[in-house]
Design a protein around this nucleic acid. Structure first.
Lengths: 142, 142
DNA sequence: TTTGAACCTCCAGTGGCTAGAGCATGTATC
DNA sequence: GATACATGCTCTAGCCACTGGAGGTTCAAA
């Protein structure tokens, strides 16, 4: 039987995060001691490991919910899990392409900066005037 | 004189976002009509363009606050603005490296999936067992 | 004058946690 | 059995950067 603290250590998760996962129904309600403290079994350890690993690979909690559901039904076709992973892969690739454009732009800004006063700082100049940019980089965030 | 809606259109910003920027002090309080509606000048248009462009390049609102401040003081050395941009570049490069690792892992998962039942789905298997991973991908998010 | 699009304020919600207050429990040592 | 104190509990609020909606007002054109 694991305390929440041990489970946290074993999975590299914060205690609060585990309780949060329980709250949103991603982790089941565990057993409790007479005093009301949570005690976990290996089943829950496996589930949390799955969740954490999926998060590390960038899956959203909603996607993880689906994956867990599929994992719980070994008879269902694999296609769905595969689809979720493929979507995630697409998203990662899209983000990478975007970051690459940003990287190029930032590098150009930084390289062209001569180190004088801000009056003629290339960095600020580029930020001021979008037309100096080589790429579009429309969307924000992501 | 621009209405908030026009300013929004011209900069590709949502109206609510402009009001939000005002609320957190990133945009100044503009003039108002007798009826209380906001009216903007070109000064504010420039400022919002600067903010939006910086956001597109991934700068945080705090970083943008610093950049705007520097931009308002042309006599100050350029070093600081350059530093902020360099930090941002570093961050982008770190994120790209991380995403590249994720991409490889996801691709491997997806490629190895044979399309049977979830019982022997490679995707789920890899998520279950971290030791099957080639890379570390410790940190979450970013 | 009337219409109706655009404006206003205020509040709540998003994702995925994270931090802290204030108290209860569990375990090791004496 | 008493004590110390690390760990646990619940509850609430905050982070970032917005976004959406309710419910009401103003502006400009017809």
């Amino acid at each position: 039987m694991l305390t929440i603290g041990n489970l946290a250590k074993m999975t590299g998760t914060k205690v609060q995060t585990i309780r949060y996962y329980e709250q949103i129904g991603l982790m089941p309600e565990p057993g409790r001691t007479e005093g009301g403290q949570r005690r976990y079994t290996d089943t829950e350890l496996d589930r949390l490991s799955f969740i954490r690993h999926s998060r590390q690979l960038g899956f959203s909690l909603d996607a993880i919910r689906e994956l867990l559901d599929l994992s719980d039904h070994p008879d269902r076709p694999c296609r769905e899990a595969d689809g979720i992973a493929r979507r995630q892969l697409k998203q990662v690739e899209r983000r990478m392409a975007r970051l690459e454009a940003l990287r190029a732009e930032l590098q150009r800004m930084v390289h062209e900066c001569s180190g004088g006063s801000t009056a003629d700082c290339r960095v600020l100049e580029v930020l001021r005037d979008h037309s100096e940019c080589l790429t579009d980089h429309e969307e924000i965030g992501a």
